[in-house]
Every structure is written in C-alpha cells, then in structure tokens.
C-alpha cells in the first residue's frame, strides 16, 4: 500500500483517522448540505447525494450563504459532522465552520490534496503537527463499494 505524507497548516488542532470523501469543487452549506443526514444536496456538486458524516472531508473550499457554519454546526449537534476537514481555499465561512465544529482541520498543503487523495483512501490527520498521511487503496474501487 502506497503511503504519502503532506505538510500543511493547522486550522483546528487534533488527530483523526478515517475514510476520505473528496470533492474537487467548493461546498455549499446552507441550501447545499442536509444537516439531518450529512448528505450533499447541492445539484452542482460532484459528490451530490454522497454523505460526509464521520468521514474525512477533502474539498476545495466553502461557497454560498453566510449560514455555512450554521449548517455544519447543526450537523455536528446532530452527530452528522465530518471527522476532519482538509481544504485549499481559506475563507471566513470554512474557517468558522471548522472552529465551531471543533474537528481537526488543515489547509495550505504543500501538494494539492485534491490531486493526491481519492474518495475511499484512508487519511490520518495530525493537525497540531501540521501534516496528513494518505494511504492509497491498492486500486480505487470506492465506487464499486458504494
């Protein structure tokens, strides 16, 4: 199994290990995410219909309404938050969302995580130390599994 380490910058500290769900695009909170279930409902999303609850969400950044943190915070209160966040674009929406969910989060990675990580890979995040470790699946058959 191939393992890759990438350095980045801590947003919110902590450690987590789990299965990645990857969106190449920005994610909409209010109006684009169902906080009841953790499902992406934005019709324009490349992971429309998929669920991030208890997974490591890897994505470009946040878009849309100022209710971004609100929706992810409600998901957290309902036990449907992601386990950790890894993203590229820094905005007040995504940063506040990470802070209020209080889950490990990392950005400004040395390699674009969207190029390296595929949905179904196992990702371990060491946010305080500022790096992630990606375990690539032998062959990515995530789609077959889901």
């Amino acid at each position: 199994m191939k393992t890759i380490m990438i350095r980045g910058r801590k947003v919110v500290g902590g450690h987590a290990k789990g299965t990645a769900i990857v969106s190449q695009r920005t994610i909409s909170g209010w109006g684009g995410t169902d906080p009841y279930t953790g499902e992406i409902i934005d019709g324009l999303s490349d992971i429309h219909g998929e669920n991030f609850a208890s997974k490591i969400l890897v994505f470009q950044g946040a878009k849309g309404s100022s209710g971004w943190s609100c929706i992810f915070h409600l998901a957290k209160l309902n036990g449907k938050a992601p386990m950790a966040l890894i993203f590229n674009e820094v905005s007040t929406k995504v940063i506040l969302g990470a802070v209020v969910m209080d889950i490990p989060a990392i950005t400004d990675l040395e390699q674009d995580p969207l190029d390296v990580i595929d949905s179904g890979d196992i990702v371990e995040i060491f946010a305080d130390e500022g790096y992630i470790v990606v375990q690539k699946r032998e062959e990515n058959n995530y789609e077959k599994l889901t």
Partner: peptide
C-alpha cells in the same frame, strides 16, 4: 455582518468593511 446581500451592500455601496461572518462569530 452576516447575510450575503447585506455584506455586499455594506462593502460595495457604502464602502464599510466586513467579511462574511457566520452566526457564531
């Protein structure tokens, strides 16, 4: 300020300065 349309009006039309804040901030 929250509310995307208010943020836009304050920044653009009035020239006040705000990022898009969320409910908690």
């Amino acid at each position: 300020s929250m509310e995307s349309s208010a943020v836009s009006f304050f920044n653009s039309v009035i020239g006040a300065r705000t990022n898009t804040e969320g409910i908690e901030s």
